[in-house]
Amino acid sequence: MADQVNISDEAFLKKGRMKKSPFEMKAEELKTWEKKEKAYVRNYLFSVGQPLVYLKEGSMVAEYADGRIELI
């Protein structure tokens, strides 16, 4: 029970990560941003035990951290 009450406030906070609005980026800059963002999303979801859900060849799939890809 002692552990239960020892969560610091900081542990509940998330942080923004936008240094420049993608809406104001030039095409090349936006491409780089999208690539970085895709990598971030992938790493984030896998780190919290969730799969990445996306369209693959017209079907919705879930890709897991261990490499499995399942139709959903």
Binding site: F12, L13, K14, K15, G16, R17, M18, K19, S21, P22, E37, Y40, V41, Y44, L45
Partner: peptide, 14 residues
């Protein structure tokens, strides 16, 4: 997952 990408850097999100 993606909210932080459109919030200014280092700003707290609840």
């Amino acid at each position: 997952t993606s909210g932080g990408a459109v919030i200014p850097n280092d700003l707290t999100i609840l």
